[in-house]
């Protein structure tokens, strides 16, 4: 692994004083955020509040206006081509809609990051890739036959699983999840949460997750960061955050949806 600037207790992701301006609006006004090794940090916040934008700045897709982002102790926005590529292989990203390559079948989608390694002189034979892809499919609970299908032929839940398999293709140490359960029915969402939990346990991953799903928060998040008005309002465990006094948090955790339904069903 990395040899430079990496001691045992350094956070996996370390965002400091990050600001981002788009045109005339300040999306982020000084964000500090840390993901520690082995934990799952969830970010909650308003729609359009810049959660995905924050994620994109962590994974080098967008340059911050000001501030620094360190991942695995390295300044991700100040690396050379090769270094940037090398570090980006240590994280896996699950995009909101899966973002599977529609021109490739599932096998080639999952094999893609492995084949990309050849760019830097790796020698991975196709027979080896084939074995690895099958293991990844098995890990995310997909049938081997799925390998030959195209993304368009899969259901929403299967697309997420395939995308997770691709995100984990190179056994990332850091998993970034953008709304992992959005658009899934409650059962699929629950199963997917369980899957992420299992893989987190087994592969000893660290994870950063954007979510609106209370179930997911309760099931997975070790800590929760609340992003409101371009700042991190507070960070802490579910209990700590829920106890924080702020209109957004009140609304977010207020008894709703599920409770309303129970209310109607039980007639109280």
């Amino acid at each position: 692994m990395s040899t430079q600037g990496n001691d045992q207790n350094a956070p996996v992701v370390d965002v400091e004083g990050l600001t981002k301006r788009l045109g005339d609006t300040w999306v982020h006004r000084g964000i500090d955020l840390e993901v520690h090794e082995g934990e799952i940090l969830a970010i909650i916040g308003e729609s359009g509040g810049g959660k995905t934008m924050l994620l994109h700045q962590i994974i080098q897709l967008v340059e911050p206006t000001e501030g620094t982002v360190h991942v695995f102790g390295e300044p991700v926005h100040h690396l050379g081509d090769y270094e940037a590529r090398r570090i980006s292989r240590r994280w896996g990203v699950l995009f909101q809609e899966g973002a599977l390559f529609s021109a490739l079948n599932i096998f080639d989608n999952i094999a893609f990051p492995m084949r990309e390694l050849r760019k830097d002189g790796a020698s991975i034979e196709e027979s080896m890739i084939s074995g690895l892809v099958r293991v990844k499919l098995e890990m995310v609970g997909l049938d081997p036959e799925v390998a030959w299908k195209t993304p368009a032929e899969l259901s929403g839940g299967m697309v997420k699983r395939a995308a997770l398999a691709r995100a984990l293709a190179l056994e990332a140490d850091l998993l970034l999840l953008d709304e992992p359960t959005a658009g899934l029915d409650p059962k699929s969402a629950g199963d997917f949460d369980a899957l992420i939990g299992e893989l987190h346990e087994e592969l000893s991953l660290s994870a950063l997750m954007i979510t609106h799903d209370l179930e997911t928060l309760a099931a997975l998040a070790d800590r929760i960061a609340v992003l409101v008005d371009g700042r991190i309002l507070t960070t802490g465990t579910l209990e700590e955050v829920a106890a924080y006094d702020h209109p957004f948090i009140k609304q977010f955790f207020q008894p709703r949806r599920g409770d309303k339904m129970l209310h109607r069903l039980t007639g109280h």
């Binding site: 293991v135 890990m139 036959e145 390998a147 087994e202 000893s204």
Partner: peptide
């Protein structure tokens, strides 16, 4: 044990499904 899990996975893998 967590490493052994990999080998168990490889062992339990079904045969390669035939490409259509």
């Amino acid at each position: 044990t967590e490493y052994r899990r990999w080998f168990e996975r490889f062992d339990a893998l079904p045969e390669t499904p035939p490409e259509p």
